[in-house]
């Protein structure tokens, strides 16, 4: 059956499509520039700047980036593993904390909650934190240094707790009458009902782990343990140093990485995620809207 469209609807749709197309192109252009830039010969960029369609086609940047492919593969391995393990473990811990804090039966929940919120207001600062990580926990150059700090955040716990509070109490009560223990209630009832909340927080965490470079910068000293983002950042930082006063003191052989290499590195780092995103995205969208419809 075909519904006849009104003229205004057609006009509205037409305008809408045009605007959205323009917006989409605007979003895509920078990516295209990165990709085409990575395939342009270095000298052409220096002479004429970045162009969407390069005059000449060159794979130099990629052959330079992959001259030690092991490094990039190692970086991928570290980042993917840390993201997967960190997100899984983090979700488990955060939801457990949120569950406990959301239960009325828990006598000290206000005090415990205050204890957790307190850390959002006061923190020891960078140096004490660093000393604790390195001297007392002995996490220098350990994968745990990348994993642990992101596992639990007070903000996520608050979010989770509030979400679980919105689940009607009668559900837990009925389960209790049927003889379920607290952990069964958490695992069998609360967790499945909190999927929207888990999806949101899981997304935050996964992004956080994927983009993390600062921890690696501070704690990791072995090159094969560098996560991907840090490898990239390292390339850019070496270029940035050349622009400061320090450069005058460096040996003249110290060559900046080429523009094209930077672009190629960006493509290598973001490419797989961009391809992965359309497949994973629908889960996120589904998860995020479930709660919204119910209100």
């Amino acid at each position: 059956m075909k519904i006849k469209m009104e003229k205004t609807t057609i006009v509205f749709n037409a305008i809408g499509y045009v605007i959205i197309t323009i917006l989409a192109v605007l979003c895509l252009l920078p990516f295209l520039l990165i990709v085409s830039g990575s395939f342009t010969p270095e000298m052409e960029i220096v002479a004429q700047g970045f162009k969407l369609i390069p005059k000449q086609f060159s794979l130099d940047a990629y052959s330079a980036a992959f001259s030690s492919p092991k490094q990039i593969l190692d970086g991928y391995k570290v980042t993917v593993l840390i993201t997967l393990i960190g997100t899984m473990l983090g979700l488990f811990l955060t939801s457990m904390a949120g569950f406990v804090l959301s239960r009325k039966e828990f006598k000290y929940k206000d005090k415990l909650a205050f204890f957790i919120y307190f850390t959002t207001l006061f923190s020891g600062g960078l140096i004490p934190w660093y000393i604790m990580m390195v001297k007392y926990l002995d996490l220098k150059d350990s994968y745990l240094a990348l994993l642990l700090p992101g596992l639990l955040s007070a903000w996520n716990i608050i979010l989770m707790k509030n979400f679980m509070k919105s689940i009607p109490e009668s559900i837990t009560e009925s389960a209790k009458i049927d003889g379920a223990g607290e952990f069964t209630i958490y695992l069998k009832l609360i967790l499945p009902l909190s999927t929207p909340g888990l999806a949101t927080i899981g997304l935050f965490m996964a992004l956080g782990y994927w983009n993390e470079w600062f921890l690696a910068n501070l704690f990791i000293t072995t090159e094969s343990k560098f996560p991907l983002q840090f490898l990239l950042y390292k390339i850019l930082a070496s270029a940035a140093v050349l622009k400061t006063n320090v450069a005058g003191n460096l040996s003249p052989d110290f060559q900046p990485p080429a523009e094209t290499l930077k672009m190629a590195a960006a493509v290598i780092a973001t490419g797989p995620i961009i391809f992965l995103y359309p497949f994973v995205q629908r889960f996120f969208v589904k998860g995020l809207t479930i709660g919204a419809v119910k209100g």
């Binding site: 960078l126 501070l218 950042y233 070496s238």
Partner: peptide
């Protein structure tokens, strides 16, 4: 140290 944020790192 690498050049990433090296002043912070060196201080630390």
């Amino acid at each position: 140290t690498t050049w990433t944020d090296w002043t912070t790192k060196y201080n630390l």
